[in-house]
C-alpha cells in the first residue's frame, strides 16, 4: 500500500503553504478553546475561594478583587475539616501502600512465571474494575456492621484497596512485560534467586511505573464518594463528604465551599505535576502512548 521511496509530504507542504498555516491556526484555536473550557471552572473555583463571602457570588462577577486567605484560615481553624482531611490522607495513603504490596508482586508473577490459565486470572482481575461499585455496596454495609468495620478507617482502607487492585495489577503487568527478561537472567546466572532478582533488578527498573500507579491509585481513592457516604458516619468520614457541611438547607456558603474544594484539589495537583509523564499511561489503564 505504501510506497516507501516517496518523500514524506515536505514538497507538498510547500505548495499548500498558506492552507497549512490556516489549518495549524485552526487546530490551535480549537485546542486552546477546549483548554480554556477545562481551566476556566478551576480558575473560578480558586478565585472564589479567595474572595470574602459577600463578594463570592456577586453579579456581575468581580473579576478584579483583593484576594484574602480568610476562608482558608477559617477552614484550618475548623477542627472538623482538619480531621477529615487528615483522615483521608491517612486512609488513602495506607490503602495505596497496601494495594502496592499486594498488586505489584502479583503483577510480576503474572508477567514472568509460567502459570496455568494465567490469562483467566488476569481477566478475572480486570473484570472487577469494570463493574459498578454500587452493586457491591449494600452487602458491605451489612458485613461492616457485623464485623464492627462500619465507620472504621480499616474498613475504608479495604474498600479503597478493592477499587484499585485490578488497576495496579494490570498496569504493572504491562510495565513488567516491557522490561527485558535478560536483565534477571543475567542476575540469576550470577547466582541470585528469583526473588532477589525481583527485588534488586526489577523493582528499581520499574520505579516509574510503580510511582505512577501509586499516584493514580491515590487519586481514585481520594475522589471516591460512594463508599464514604454509605460506610462511614463520624470517625472515618473522608474529606469528599465534609464539603457538604457548607451546603445548608437555606443557603450555600459559596466561598467556604470553594476553599474546601480547592484544598481537596491540592494533593492531587501536586501529584499530577510530579507524574505528568506517566499520567496518561496510568489513567488510561495501561494504554501506553508512544513518546
Amino acid at each position: 500500500m505504501a510506497t516507501a521511496d516517496t518523500e514524506p509530504g515536505s514538497s507538498q507542504r510547500f505548495e499548500k503553504g498558506t492552507r497549512e498555516t490556516l489549518v495549524t491556526v485552526a487546530r490551535h484555536a480549537v485546542l486552546l478553546t477546549w483548554s480554556f473550557l477545562v481551566l476556566f471552572p478551576l480558575y473560578w473555583l480558586a478565585s472564589m475561594s479567595l474572595k470574602p463571602s459577600g463578594q463570592a457570588n456577586s453579579l456581575p462577577p468581580d473579576w478584579i478583587f483583593l484576594p484574602t486567605v480568610y476562608n482558608y484560615l477559617q477552614l484550618v481553624q475548623s477542627s472538623d475539616f482538619v480531621t477529615a482531611f487528615a483522615n483521608s490522607l491517612l486512609m488513602v495513603g495506607a490503602s495505596v501502600v497496601l494495594v502496592l504490596l499486594i498488586g505489584v508482586p502479583a503483577a510480576y508473577v503474572l508477567s514472568r512465571y509460567d502459570i496455568p490459565k494465567e490469562r483467566d486470572v488476569l481477566v478475572w482481575i480486570l473484570s472487577s474494575r469494570m463493574l459498578p461499585p454500587i452493586a457491591v455496596v449494600l452487602p458491605f454495609f451489612i458485613i461492616f456492621q457485623e464485623f464492627n468495620l462500619f465507620d472504621s478507617k480499616i474498613g475504608m482502607v479495604l474498600m479503597y484497596v478493592s477499587i484499585n487492585l485490578s488497576l495496579v495489577v494490570w498496569v504493572m503487568k504491562a510495565f513488567f512485560d516491557g522490561i527485558p527478561e535478560t536483565l534477571e537472567e543475567a542476575a540469576r546466572v550470577d547466582g541470585a534467586t528469583r526473588f532477589q532478582g525481583f527485588l534488586k533488578i526489577i523493582l528499581p527498573a520499574a520505579k516509574p511505573g510503580i510511582f505512577s500507579v501509586a499516584i493514580i491509585s491515590f487519586i481514585f481513592a481520594w475522589i471516591e464518594l460512594l463508599f464514604g457516604l454509605v460506610l462511614t458516619s463520624f470517625n472515618a468520614v473522608p474529606v469528599t463528604l465534609f464539603v457538604y457541611s457548607f451546603i445548608g438547607s437555606r443557603s450555600i456558603e459559596w466561598s467556604m465551599l470553594a476553599a474546601a474544594s480547592t484544598a481537596m484539589i491540592i494533593p492531587v495537583a501536586i501529584f499530577l505535576i510530579a507524574v505528568n509523564k506517566y499520567l496518561a499511561a496510568g489513567l488510561s489503564f495501561g494504554v501506553v502512548i508512544k513518546e
Binding site: V38, I223, T240, M264, L283
Partner: peptide, 15 residues
C-alpha cells in the same frame, strides 16, 4: 485535558 478526570465529582459538581 486529563486534569478534570482527577477531580472529585464533589468539586466539579460545585462549579
Amino acid at each position: 485535558y486529563l486534569l478534570p478526570m482527577s477531580l472529585s465529582f464533589v468539586v466539579t459538581a460545585q462549579f
